[in-house]
Protein backbone atom coordinates (compact mmCIF):
# COMPACT_ATOMS: atom_id res chain seq x y z
CA UNK A 1 0.00 0.00 0.00
CA UNK A 2 1.18 3.51 -0.77
CA UNK A 3 2.46 4.99 2.51
CA UNK A 4 0.38 8.20 2.32
CA UNK A 5 -3.17 6.77 2.61
CA UNK A 6 -1.92 4.36 5.26
CA UNK A 7 -0.38 7.13 7.35
CA UNK A 8 -3.43 9.35 6.89
CA UNK A 9 -5.79 6.59 8.00
CA UNK A 10 -3.56 5.86 11.00
CA UNK A 11 -3.54 9.50 12.04
CA UNK A 12 -7.32 9.81 11.62
CA UNK A 13 -7.90 6.72 13.73
CA UNK A 14 -5.50 8.03 16.36
CA UNK A 15 -7.30 11.38 16.33
CA UNK A 16 -10.69 9.73 16.87
CA UNK A 17 -9.27 7.67 19.73
CA UNK A 18 -7.78 10.81 21.27
CA UNK A 19 -11.09 12.63 20.94
CA UNK A 20 -12.91 9.77 22.66
CA UNK A 21 -10.34 9.73 25.47
CA UNK A 22 -10.60 13.52 25.80
CA UNK A 23 -14.37 13.28 26.21
CA UNK A 24 -13.80 10.74 29.01
CA UNK A 25 -11.34 13.16 30.64
CA UNK A 26 -13.81 16.03 30.47
CA UNK A 27 -16.52 13.86 31.94
CA UNK A 28 -14.27 12.52 34.70
CA UNK A 29 -12.89 16.03 35.32
CA UNK A 30 -16.26 17.07 36.66
CA UNK A 31 -16.50 14.11 39.01
CA UNK A 32 -13.27 14.41 41.00
CA UNK A 33 -14.90 16.60 43.59
CA UNK A 34 -15.64 15.60 47.17
CA UNK A 35 -19.44 15.79 46.78
CA UNK A 36 -21.18 15.73 43.43
CA UNK A 37 -22.78 18.14 40.97
CA UNK A 38 -25.96 18.45 42.99
CA UNK A 39 -23.96 19.39 46.07
CA UNK A 40 -21.92 21.92 44.09
CA UNK A 41 -25.03 23.55 42.63
CA UNK A 42 -27.13 23.65 45.78
CA UNK A 43 -24.29 24.43 48.21
CA UNK A 44 -23.33 22.99 51.58
CA UNK A 45 -26.59 23.90 53.30
CA UNK A 46 -28.96 22.04 50.96
CA UNK A 47 -31.50 19.71 52.57
CA UNK A 48 -31.14 15.98 51.85
CA UNK A 49 -34.52 15.98 50.04
CA UNK A 50 -33.47 18.78 47.69
CA UNK A 51 -30.21 16.96 46.98
CA UNK A 52 -32.04 13.70 46.26
CA UNK A 53 -34.47 15.48 43.91
CA UNK A 54 -31.64 17.18 42.08
CA UNK A 55 -29.73 13.94 41.75
CA UNK A 56 -32.76 12.13 40.37
CA UNK A 57 -33.51 14.88 37.84
CA UNK A 58 -29.88 14.92 36.67
CA UNK A 59 -29.74 11.13 36.50
CA UNK A 60 -26.98 11.12 39.10
CA UNK A 61 -28.46 8.01 40.70
CA UNK A 62 -27.30 6.08 37.61
CA UNK A 63 -23.78 4.61 37.59
CA UNK A 64 -21.10 6.89 36.09
CA UNK A 65 -20.40 4.69 33.08
CA UNK A 66 -24.08 4.67 32.06
CA UNK A 67 -24.24 8.44 32.47
CA UNK A 68 -21.11 8.90 30.39
CA UNK A 69 -22.44 6.90 27.44
CA UNK A 70 -25.88 8.55 27.61
CA UNK A 71 -24.14 11.95 27.61
CA UNK A 72 -21.79 11.07 24.75
CA UNK A 73 -24.41 9.44 22.50
CA UNK A 74 -26.83 12.35 22.87
CA UNK A 75 -23.98 14.82 22.33
CA UNK A 76 -23.09 13.02 19.10
CA UNK A 77 -26.69 13.45 17.95
CA UNK A 78 -26.47 17.17 18.63
CA UNK A 79 -28.40 17.07 21.90
CA UNK A 80 -26.20 18.72 24.53
CA UNK A 81 -28.81 18.68 27.27
CA UNK A 82 -30.28 21.64 29.13
CA UNK A 83 -28.53 24.24 31.24
CA UNK A 84 -29.01 23.91 35.00
CA UNK A 85 -29.05 27.65 35.60
CA UNK A 86 -31.82 28.70 33.20
CA UNK A 87 -33.24 25.41 31.88
CA UNK A 88 -32.59 26.37 28.24
CA UNK A 89 -31.47 23.97 25.55
CA UNK A 90 -27.67 24.18 25.38
CA UNK A 91 -27.31 23.30 21.69
CA UNK A 92 -29.52 26.18 20.55
CA UNK A 93 -27.79 28.64 22.92
CA UNK A 94 -24.43 27.59 21.57
CA UNK A 95 -25.19 27.60 17.83
CA UNK A 96 -25.08 31.37 17.30
CA UNK A 97 -22.24 31.85 19.76
CA UNK A 98 -20.07 29.22 18.13
CA UNK A 99 -20.55 31.03 14.82
CA UNK A 100 -19.46 34.33 16.41
CA UNK A 101 -16.41 32.72 17.99
CA UNK A 102 -15.35 31.09 14.74
CA UNK A 103 -15.87 34.41 12.92
CA UNK A 104 -13.59 36.21 15.37
CA UNK A 105 -10.96 33.45 15.21
CA UNK A 106 -11.15 33.42 11.40
CA UNK A 107 -10.63 37.19 11.14
CA UNK A 108 -7.65 36.96 13.47
CA UNK A 109 -6.24 34.02 11.48
CA UNK A 110 -6.64 35.84 8.14
CA UNK A 111 -4.56 38.73 9.48
CA UNK A 112 -2.01 36.90 11.60
CA UNK A 113 -0.95 34.04 9.30
CA UNK A 114 0.18 36.11 6.26
CA UNK A 115 1.60 38.78 8.55
CA UNK A 116 3.61 36.26 10.57
CA UNK A 117 5.08 34.64 7.46
CA UNK A 118 5.91 38.01 5.91
CA UNK A 119 7.54 39.27 9.11
CA UNK A 120 9.44 36.00 9.41
CA UNK A 121 10.79 36.45 5.88
CA UNK A 122 11.67 40.06 6.65
CA UNK A 123 13.49 39.06 9.84
CA UNK A 124 15.57 36.53 7.89
CA UNK A 125 16.30 39.06 5.12
CA UNK A 126 17.60 41.60 7.66
CA UNK A 127 18.97 39.03 10.06
CA UNK A 128 20.69 40.52 13.14
CA UNK A 129 20.07 44.07 11.87
CA UNK A 130 17.58 46.50 13.33
CA UNK A 131 14.38 45.24 11.61
CA UNK A 132 15.04 41.73 12.95
CA UNK A 133 15.75 43.03 16.44
CA UNK A 134 12.74 45.37 16.44
CA UNK A 135 10.39 42.56 15.36
CA UNK A 136 11.84 40.25 18.01
CA UNK A 137 11.53 42.87 20.75
CA UNK A 138 7.89 43.69 19.97
CA UNK A 139 6.83 40.08 19.67
CA UNK A 140 8.65 39.12 22.89
CA UNK A 141 6.91 41.87 24.83
CA UNK A 142 3.53 40.81 23.49
CA UNK A 143 4.02 37.23 24.77
CA UNK A 144 5.11 38.32 28.25
CA UNK A 145 1.64 39.80 28.79
CA UNK A 146 -1.40 37.66 29.52
CA UNK A 147 -4.01 37.96 26.75
CA UNK A 148 -6.53 39.83 28.86
CA UNK A 149 -4.04 42.54 29.85
CA UNK A 150 -2.92 42.95 26.24
CA UNK A 151 -6.63 43.32 25.49
CA UNK A 152 -7.02 46.17 27.97
CA UNK A 153 -3.83 47.90 26.85
CA UNK A 154 -5.09 47.87 23.27
CA UNK A 155 -8.59 48.89 24.32
CA UNK A 156 -7.13 51.79 26.31
CA UNK A 157 -4.99 53.03 23.42
CA UNK A 158 -7.15 52.42 20.35
CA UNK A 159 -10.59 52.97 21.78
CA UNK A 160 -10.33 55.32 24.76
CA UNK A 161 -7.33 57.46 23.81
CA UNK A 162 -7.59 57.58 20.02
CA UNK A 163 -11.25 56.63 19.55
CA UNK A 164 -10.61 54.48 16.48
CA UNK A 165 -12.71 51.40 17.26
CA UNK A 166 -15.54 50.52 19.65
CA UNK A 167 -14.33 49.24 23.04
CA UNK A 168 -17.16 46.73 23.35
CA UNK A 169 -17.70 44.28 20.52
CA UNK A 170 -21.44 44.03 20.11
CA UNK A 171 -22.39 41.87 17.22
CA UNK A 172 -25.75 40.72 15.87
CA UNK A 173 -27.26 39.20 12.75
CA UNK A 174 -28.59 42.52 11.47
CA UNK A 175 -25.11 43.93 10.97
CA UNK A 176 -23.44 44.05 7.58
CA UNK A 177 -20.11 42.29 7.08
CA UNK A 178 -18.16 45.55 7.32
CA UNK A 179 -19.93 46.57 10.52
CA UNK A 180 -19.09 43.18 11.97
CA UNK A 181 -15.46 43.60 10.96
CA UNK A 182 -15.37 46.99 12.66
CA UNK A 183 -16.88 45.50 15.81
CA UNK A 184 -14.30 42.70 16.06
CA UNK A 185 -11.35 44.90 15.05
CA UNK A 186 -9.86 45.19 18.54
CA UNK A 187 -10.34 41.60 19.74
CA UNK A 188 -8.97 40.36 16.42
CA UNK A 189 -5.96 42.66 16.82
CA UNK A 190 -5.23 41.27 20.29
CA UNK A 191 -5.53 37.67 19.14
CA UNK A 192 -3.25 38.45 16.20
CA UNK A 193 -0.59 39.83 18.55
CA UNK A 194 -0.94 36.83 20.85
CA UNK A 195 -0.20 34.23 18.16
CA UNK A 196 1.99 36.38 15.91
CA UNK A 197 5.12 36.13 18.06
CA UNK A 198 5.26 32.35 18.14
CA UNK A 199 4.40 31.89 14.46
CA UNK A 200 6.87 34.53 13.32
CA UNK A 201 9.73 33.16 15.41
CA UNK A 202 9.13 29.62 14.18
CA UNK A 203 8.95 30.82 10.57
CA UNK A 204 12.23 32.64 11.07
CA UNK A 205 13.85 29.59 12.66
CA UNK A 206 12.55 27.22 9.97
CA UNK A 207 13.83 29.39 7.11
CA UNK A 208 17.17 30.02 8.82
CA UNK A 209 17.53 26.27 9.11
CA UNK A 210 17.04 25.83 5.34
CA UNK A 211 19.39 28.75 4.64
CA UNK A 212 22.30 26.61 5.84
CA UNK A 213 21.91 24.19 2.90
CA UNK A 214 24.35 24.01 0.03
CA UNK A 215 21.76 24.72 -2.66
CA UNK A 216 21.03 28.09 -1.07
CA UNK A 217 24.68 28.96 -1.41
CA UNK A 218 24.47 27.99 -5.11
CA UNK A 219 21.47 30.25 -5.58
CA UNK A 220 23.32 33.02 -3.79
CA UNK A 221 26.37 32.61 -6.01
CA UNK A 222 24.07 32.70 -9.05
CA UNK A 223 23.48 36.33 -8.03
CA UNK A 224 19.81 36.17 -6.96
CA UNK A 225 18.40 39.00 -4.89
CA UNK A 226 18.22 38.20 -1.16
CA UNK A 227 14.44 38.40 -0.89
CA UNK A 228 13.85 36.30 -4.06
CA UNK A 229 16.30 33.78 -2.70
CA UNK A 230 14.46 33.49 0.59
CA UNK A 231 10.93 33.56 -0.82
CA UNK A 232 11.49 31.28 -3.85
CA UNK A 233 14.21 28.88 -2.72
CA UNK A 234 14.25 28.68 1.07
CA UNK A 235 10.54 29.11 1.81
CA UNK A 236 9.15 26.04 -0.08
CA UNK A 237 11.36 23.70 1.90
CA UNK A 238 10.37 25.33 5.16
CA UNK A 239 6.63 24.93 4.47
CA UNK A 240 6.10 21.79 6.55
CA UNK A 241 7.34 23.21 9.86
CA UNK A 242 5.64 26.54 9.16
CA UNK A 243 2.26 24.95 8.44
CA UNK A 244 2.63 22.91 11.58
CA UNK A 245 3.23 26.00 13.69
CA UNK A 246 0.37 27.85 11.99
CA UNK A 247 -2.06 25.04 12.81
CA UNK A 248 -0.91 24.79 16.42
CA UNK A 249 -1.40 28.53 16.75
CA UNK A 250 -4.84 28.39 15.17
CA UNK A 251 -5.73 25.79 17.76
CA UNK A 252 -4.34 28.11 20.40
CA UNK A 253 -6.35 30.97 18.91
CA UNK A 254 -9.60 29.11 19.49
CA UNK A 255 -8.67 28.83 23.17
CA UNK A 256 -7.30 32.36 23.50
CA UNK A 257 -10.70 33.51 22.30
CA UNK A 258 -12.18 32.45 25.66
CA UNK A 259 -10.41 35.20 27.58
CA UNK A 260 -10.59 37.86 24.88
CA UNK A 261 -14.35 37.46 24.58
CA UNK A 262 -14.72 38.26 28.26
CA UNK A 263 -12.56 41.39 27.88
CA UNK A 264 -14.50 42.77 24.93
CA UNK A 265 -17.91 41.43 26.08
CA UNK A 266 -18.18 39.57 22.78
CA UNK A 267 -21.18 37.20 22.59
CA UNK A 268 -19.27 33.99 21.80
CA UNK A 269 -18.62 30.53 23.22
CA UNK A 270 -15.84 31.67 25.54
CA UNK A 271 -17.97 34.14 27.42
CA UNK A 272 -20.76 31.57 27.64
CA UNK A 273 -18.32 29.02 29.10
CA UNK A 274 -16.81 31.40 31.67
CA UNK A 275 -20.24 32.64 32.79
CA UNK A 276 -21.41 29.12 33.42
CA UNK A 277 -18.25 28.02 35.20
CA UNK A 278 -18.98 30.72 37.77
CA UNK A 279 -22.59 29.49 38.02
CA UNK A 280 -21.33 25.90 38.38
CA UNK A 281 -23.55 24.85 35.50
CA UNK A 282 -21.87 21.52 34.80
CA UNK A 283 -23.76 20.38 31.64
CA UNK A 284 -22.91 23.67 29.87
CA UNK A 285 -19.27 23.47 30.94
CA UNK A 286 -19.02 19.87 29.73
CA UNK A 287 -20.61 20.75 26.39
CA UNK A 288 -18.38 23.79 25.82
CA UNK A 289 -15.29 21.87 26.98
CA UNK A 290 -16.11 19.08 24.53
CA UNK A 291 -16.54 21.52 21.63
CA UNK A 292 -13.32 23.42 22.40
CA UNK A 293 -11.38 20.16 22.80
CA UNK A 294 -12.80 18.87 19.50
CA UNK A 295 -11.72 21.98 17.61
CA UNK A 296 -8.32 21.93 19.29
CA UNK A 297 -7.66 18.25 18.60
CA UNK A 298 -9.08 18.60 15.08
CA UNK A 299 -6.72 21.42 14.15
CA UNK A 300 -3.74 19.58 15.62
CA UNK A 301 -4.74 16.53 13.59
CA UNK A 302 -4.94 18.68 10.46
CA UNK A 303 -1.44 19.96 11.20
CA UNK A 304 -0.18 16.37 11.35
CA UNK A 305 -1.90 15.48 8.09
CA UNK A 306 -0.55 18.52 6.24
CA UNK A 307 2.99 17.84 7.38
CA UNK A 308 2.66 14.25 6.16
CA UNK A 309 1.32 15.40 2.79
CA UNK A 310 3.95 18.11 2.34
CA UNK A 311 6.83 15.69 2.82
CA UNK A 312 8.12 14.86 -0.68
CA UNK A 313 9.93 11.76 0.60
CA UNK A 314 6.59 10.30 1.64
CA UNK A 315 4.76 11.45 -1.48
CA UNK A 316 7.26 9.83 -3.86
CA UNK A 317 8.54 6.68 -2.14
CA UNK A 318 11.42 4.85 -3.77
Amino acid sequence: MHPIPKLVIQRLALGLLLLFAASVMIFVGTMILPGDVAQAVLGQNATPEALANMRASLGLDQPAVTRYFTWLSSALQGDLGTALSNGRDIASSIAGRLQNTLFLAAVAACISVPLAIFLGLLAVRYRDRWPDKLISAITLTSISLPEFLLGYVIMYLFSVQWGLFPSVSNINDGMSFLQKLNAVALPAMVLTLVVLAHMMRMTRAAILNVMQSAYIETAELKGLRRFTLIARHAMPNAIAPIVNVVMINLAYLVVGVVVIEVVFVYPGMGQYLVDHVAKRDVPVVQACGLIFATIYIGLNLLADLISILSNPRLRHPK
Binding site: L18, A21, A22, M25, I26, G29, T30, M31, I32, L33, V37, A40, A251, Y252, V255, V258, V259, L273, V274, H276, V277, R280, D281, V282, V285, Q286, C288, G289, F292, A293, Y296, I297, N300
Partner: peptide, 20 residues
Amino acid sequence: DLVMSIPTLIFALVVLSVMP
Protein backbone atom coordinates in the same frame (compact mmCIF):
# COMPACT_ATOMS: atom_id res chain seq x y z
CA ASP B 1 -0.17 13.09 25.83
CA LEU B 2 -3.86 12.67 26.52
CA VAL B 3 -3.92 15.31 29.26
CA MET B 4 -1.93 17.65 27.02
CA SER B 5 -4.39 17.16 24.16
CA ILE B 6 -7.00 19.21 26.01
CA PRO B 7 -6.15 22.94 26.20
CA THR B 8 -4.94 23.76 29.72
CA LEU B 9 -7.31 26.67 30.29
CA ILE B 10 -10.36 24.70 29.13
CA PHE B 11 -9.45 21.74 31.34
CA ALA B 12 -8.88 24.04 34.32
CA LEU B 13 -12.28 25.66 33.73
CA VAL B 14 -13.99 22.26 33.56
CA VAL B 15 -12.39 21.10 36.81
CA LEU B 16 -12.88 24.39 38.66
CA SER B 17 -16.57 24.43 37.73
CA VAL B 18 -17.15 21.68 40.30
CA MET B 19 -14.30 22.19 42.77
CA PRO B 20 -14.45 24.70 45.61
